[in-house]
């Protein structure tokens, strides 16, 4: 058998039509390369930022011990007797973000449920663009809004409130991130197939029961993604807190105190005239690193939650 098959040696040729088209291949490669380079810009920038943060932080931690950095309760890098405890800044960041989320998560989620499940087509098409307009308001405007409008109003209720306080800043920041939560959650809920809603209605459920027990759980991964984005926005938000929450690092979780956040401190120093290479100057990189780790861990948690609750329809 084998010998028989070997017998007739056929000259194999490639017809010109089937020959490799070198010009086309080169063109494809070039395009691929250009596309990859474009994608690399973002990746490279991220790595560069992380690299610089790490490098500058490293020289900072040569002067200040990591233990002091996390346990010292004072942050006074500009004083004669300098303390470098990051906790006051972390507490300010967490408190303002928590207030913002306490405002934005309920209102944003309820808005999303209303728009997706209850509003008529016309209402939705009117409200959603207006809501998204909020995203376009410069944050500095929100900052002044907090300082000159919200805080004075709060002072009427609570007269001891200082002009710079975390409560006003947090509330305004919350209003600022409502559109993110509402808009993204609404997209997630509208992506839930109609057949699932019909299934619920056919079981005799009301609109509200359907929205709460079927649509929201089905959309939970998208809704969580919206929350995570909102948290990252709140933690990284700078202008509102720099203007309205005060600039005094203060280890407190009390919303009616004034305090500085990590971002507010970075702005303060970056705008000031600290000499390059000084410990004070390097401290903003350490603060920035902490900030980045915070947002990164929220993103990781969000990613994990999304994966755990991912629904396939």
């Amino acid at each position: 058998m084998a010998t028989q098959l070997m017998q007739a040696p056929v000259q194999l040729t490639i017809s010109p039509r089937l020959a490799k088209n070198i010009r086309r291949n080169v063109k494809e490669r070039v395009i691929e390369l250009i596309l990859m380079l474009a994608a690399l810009v973002a990746v490279a920038t991220t790595f560069a930022i992380v690299g610089i943060l790490l490098y500058e932080s490293l020289s900072f931690f040569k002067t200040v011990s990591v233990i002091d950095f996390f346990t010292d309760t004072q942050w006074t890098p500009l004083f004669e007797d300098a303390h470098y405890g990051i906790m006051p800044l972390v507490s300010g960041t967490l408190t303002t973000s928590a207030i913002a989320l306490a405002v934005a998560v309920p209102i944003g989620t309820i808005t999303a449920i209303f728009l997706s499940e209850f509003a008529s087509h016309k209402t939705r098409e009117t409200i959603k663009p207006i809501l998204e307009l909020l995203v376009g308001v410069p944050t500095v405007v929100f900052g002044y809004f907090a300082l000159f409008f919200v805080t004075p109003m709060l002072q009427k209720i609570y007269p001891d409130l200082p002009s710079f306080n975390m409560l006003g800043a947090g509330i305004v920041m919350g209003v600022m991130i409502i559109p993110y939560i509402a808009s993204l959650s609404e997209d997630a809920m509208r992506a839930v197939p109609m057949s699932m809603r019909e299934g619920s209605y056919a079981m005799g459920a009301t609109r509200f029961q359907t929205a709460l027990k079927v649509v929201t759980p089905a959309a939970v991964s998208g809704i969580v993604a919206a929350y995570i984005l909102a948290i990252s926005r709140a933690v990284g938000e700078t202008m509102v807190v720099a203007i309205a929450a005060g600039q005094q690092p203060n280890l407190t979780f009390n919303p009616v105190d004034s305090a500085a956040t990590i971002t507010a401190y970075i702005v303060q120093v970056a705008m000031g005239d600290l000499p390059h290479g000084s410990v004070g100057y390097q401290s903003i990189f350490a603060a920035g690193l902490v900030l980045m780790i915070m947002t990164l861990s929220f993103n990781v948690i969000g990613h994990w939650v999304r994966k755990k609750y991912r629904e396939s329809y």
Binding site: P193, S195, M196, E198, G199, S200, Y201, A202, M203, G204, A205, T206, Q209, K213, V214, P217, A218, V220, E311
Partner: peptide, 28 residues
């Protein structure tokens, strides 16, 4: 809809456990 129930073209279970899917009509 409580007296006349419906089964759809494409299976459309809810994003819940098997038990909760069946219990849904009673829960509502």
């Amino acid at each position: 809809r409580m007296r006349i129930s419906m089964v759809f073209q494409k299976p459309n279970p809810f994003p819940k456990s098997i038990y909760e899917n069946v219990a849904y009509g009673l829960r509502v």
